[in-house]
């Protein structure tokens, strides 16, 4: 299945920069005919994945970069690799916010939402590189 690189960039750890990159990727996916339903899900996952890299990975350190490689095949297979320059983390250490004792905690739901709306999300062993995939409908 031929995959086309649609985005390959690095940006400084800044939430405005993250929003800019996110919007550029979504605009490109829209132009390539990704359905509106899939676009909405991807927009959410991009927000969560990129914001996590900037805030939790690089801890908003402007000397650190976030690297993004994004592909979409003609058949609609989407993948994005988001790499930060932080120390990484173990996704298994993130508390389960669906447990009654954690239900009112105001953070920690980003991974859960990405898992719910994407086909697959996985971190590398270090925990500073996230790969997200989803098969999208192309209209």
């Amino acid at each position: 299945m031929p995959e086309t690189s649609i985005f390959n960039t690095s940006f400084t750890s800044d939430l405005d920069e993250s929003a800019r990159v996110q919007n550029e990727i979504v605009a490109e996916l829209e132009q390539r005919g990704v359905s509106m339903g899939d676009l909405a899900d991807l927009h959410l996952a991009l927000e969560e994945g990129l914001a996590n890299a900037v805030k939790h990975g690089n801890k908003l350190d402007s000397s650190k970069q976030v690297h993004v490689e994004c592909e979409l095949s003609e058949a609609g297979f989407f993948s994005i690799v988001i790499q930060d320059e932080g120390e990484g983390f173990d996704p298994n250490d993130v508390p389960d916010c669906t447990l009654p004792e954690n239900l009112d905690k105001p953070s920690g739901r980003g991974l859960m939402l990405m898992r719910a709306f994407m086909d697959d999300i996985r971190y590398n062993d270090v925990g500073n590189q996230l790969t997200i995939t989803k098969t999208c409908t192309i209209e």
Partner: peptide, 15 residues
């Protein structure tokens, strides 16, 4: 139409 986990955090704090 769209809401992120950070927005959910604000709603929890609002409650």
């Amino acid at each position: 139409e769209h809401l992120s986990s950070a927005a959910l955090g604000k709603l929890i704090n609002m409650k």
